[in-house]
Design a protein around this nucleic acid. Structure first.
Lengths: 404, 404
DNA sequence: CCTATAAGTTCAATGGCTGAACAAACAAGA
DNA sequence: TCTTGTTTGTTCAGCCATTGAACTTATAGG
């Protein structure tokens, strides 16, 4: 995964000093809601106006930020020129492989989605190679579409519903994939030469939510066919030793509970996974389960409401464990859960209040995803731009040296 | 809690550059097993020999490191002079308040314990003020004892078995304390003017284990009367939003399980807490429970072995959830668990293998605490010295300006 | 005693930040 | 319209930490 932590064990020379402050200034530009002037950046960051000026010049020359037309703002004194993230230049390419669709999107440095395409395609009927082929076509569209907008993809990240280690997909149960390697850039057409990465979809969705909501620390839980999760701590994605952190779907709810396909018993998925809720609600299999659930709940169907209540209780038990362990203030529900939150929340909050030992001093908040089903796709694209924003110096360096 | 993270949002000036490299060099000195020479530090850190020389001079002047007598090492060329952490100068004072004893210890910058005193005293029969009074006496002994060894305490940390927020103890169930404030330094006799801190004992024990074992990431679980925990990620203690992370004792094992004093049901403590194991093993109450359990297990007592097997299973279920969530490679068992590990481990490992979804690729290791029952005490003391080692510049600055 | 090798120091050069002075751009009041 | 006051942005000398190369110091081996 891209966002490498700042290397604490590296020596610091003059250049790293500038690198740090480049990132610092750029962060102020992207973080503030109103385009800040050089003077405002200086005041907020603690650097002097002189330093900020030279750094902003370097960022402008590198195409990472742009000056606004000098807008006359209220107040006396010379008006400042607003600095904004560049709307042209580098872009991030997000791709998603899911059970029944492929999707691609592109975001610019401001975080705006500049292109988006979804193709319905059942991966279970195709080989990984065919999937990569189809994804390459979508990616080519995207590159062409953003090129006319003045954007050049600086990298791509592929979101998959499975366990990823390095550049290989260990296992993606719902796709029926095992030990699938990342496609080489050459096999992805127009992406030739572009740095490419794969990561777990829930992890990337958490990253997407982090930017969309502005939350510093939260636990993201996505309910689809499986249950995925991602952890964001103090603004950074927490990956764990191998990047597998957040696997809440197979946390034990009841050690003696029903068998799970993972080989264990009583996993959360057996209580709050799509199939479990559907069965408990007495709905037909193979239909549009989410829509049926929402309809049933709206109409006050007893079995549906009971099923959601049970799922919410199990979710609440699992989340209580996570909150006890991580002391994290917010839980974000994504995927199908986002649309079911009104019926899940009471049970979740009840369990959190009962089972979290610090609940009386700092109750955890439960909220719905801001990006909905696009979270993983947008998160993947933003992983690319975020890497640039986190370390602009590296981007400027590689852009300066090679002639490609 | 002392170890504040490096502030990513701070501006970086020339001075911070030096600050960073001071810490970098000092880290190399404390981390290597053999006293490194200036040249070795330069090679390992990436700095030049010139820079390392000036930095080492500054550290020597500040009393944080010392030169060894030039020992002739094998090999041609001028032998290097080894640099070691100073055995005199600043010390860390660790204090522990527990149910039936008070303890104080002092460590120097090398991590060596230079003083240690334990006083048996039942806190439940005394007010917090009386406890602070007794602790102050022990602390005075410690300050006097280390003074003759050339050590001056630079700060103190008190470990308590309870929930701490900032400078107040929210609740310490086994002490019967609620909303107890940190004693003011003035009320602690010889500690006048010393920076003082409180923190949870399990959290500090995790910190102690981190130094004793050299592990970068692990989950520490301590079984005493209650069950505490601490999380170390990539060498740093993870505190969560309020510093309450690691509360594994009240993770749910069975949502319908027995009532817990915390107000919830089926908490881990009801299965693997001292009282639960004792009752399951059919041992008398009020005795030396740990000793009785070890004796029973050694003699092959059926009820005792069954009780430990059950406790291990519950621990394994809770730890599986934690490992799924955090993708953490090692679990360290402390407190009483350390002495019971031979009988707990089989069940724990069985559950981890079954319930952790990534177990087949990266099985988590289970090991016993290296510090045993001293972990919290030593961890508290090392929290002080670690803060100095992490940011030597700050220590040198405050030491330089005030004449006290 | 001489040579090779490695450790540690000295010093001019370099790069990046600061602080103060200055120029530019605007509002408000006379 | 002109002046005054205010804020923005730039310029430049000074400062500070690191570098790299030359130099000194200390050892082993022939």
């Amino acid at each position: 995964m891209p966002p490498r932590p700042p290397r604490r064990d590296d020596p610091v020379r003059q250049r790293s000093l500038r690198d740090h402050n480049l990132a610092l200034v750029l962060r102020h530009v992207t973080a503030s809601n109103r385009p800040p002037s050089r003077a405002e950046i200086a005041a907020a960051s603690g650097l002097t106006r002189a330093t900020v000026s030279t750094i902003v010049d370097e960022l402008i020359a590198g195409g990472l930020v742009a000056e606004l037309e000098p807008v006359s703002r209220s107040g006396v004194g010379r008006p400042g020129t607003g600095i904004v993230p560049a709307g042209t230049g580098p872009a991030g390419l997000g791709m998603e492989v899911n059970v029944d669709y492929l999707a691609v999107c592109a975001v610019d440095l401001t975080g705006a989605v500049r292109h988006r395409e979804v193709r319905h395609l059942d991966q279970r009927e195709h080989s990984p190679a065919q999937t990569w082929q189809a994804l390459a076509e979508l990616a080519d569209h995207a590159v062409a579409a953003v090129a006319v907008q003045g954007l050049t993809p600086a990298g791509g990240v592929i979101a998959v519903p499975g366990l990823v280690e390095g550049d290989t997909i260990r296992i993606a149960p719902n796709l029926g994939w095992q030990q699938v390697a990342l496609p080489r850039p050459e096999d992805l057409g127009g992406l030739r030469g572009l740095p490419l990465d794969v990561a777990n979809e829930a992890t990337l969705a958490a990253l997407g939510e982090r930017h969309a909501t502005g939350l510093r620390s939260f636990l993201y839980v996505s309910g689809e066919i499986g249950i995925g999760g991602g952890i964001v701590l103090d603004g950074e994605l927490f990956g764990g030793s191998h990047g597998w952190a957040g696997e809440i779907g197979h946390v034990t709810i009841d050690p003696q509970g029903p068998d799970c396909h993972c080989g264990s018993r009583g996993c959360l998925e057996q209580y709050a996974g799509e199939e479990a809720i559907r069965a408990a609600a007495g709905l037909r299999a193979g239909g549009a389960v989410l829509a049926d659930l929402v309809d049933g709940a709206r109409q006050g169907s007893g079995p549906v409401l009971d099923a959601l209540e049970h799922a919410g209780t199990a979710l609440g038990v699992a989340l209580s464990g996570a909150v006890n362990l991580l002391d994290i203030g917010t839980v974000v529900l994504g995927g199908h859960y986002a649309e079911l939150i009104d019926w899940l929340r009471p049970a979740i909050e009840r369990e959190l209040a009962r089972r979290v030992i610090t609940a009386r001093w700092a109750p955890a908040k439960v909220r719905a995803s801001a990006l909905g089903s696009d979270a993983a796709l947008v998160g993947a694209a933003r992983a690319v731009t975020q890497a640039i924003l986190d370390d602009p110096a590296r981007f400027l360096a590689v852009r300066a040296t090679p002639a490609g």
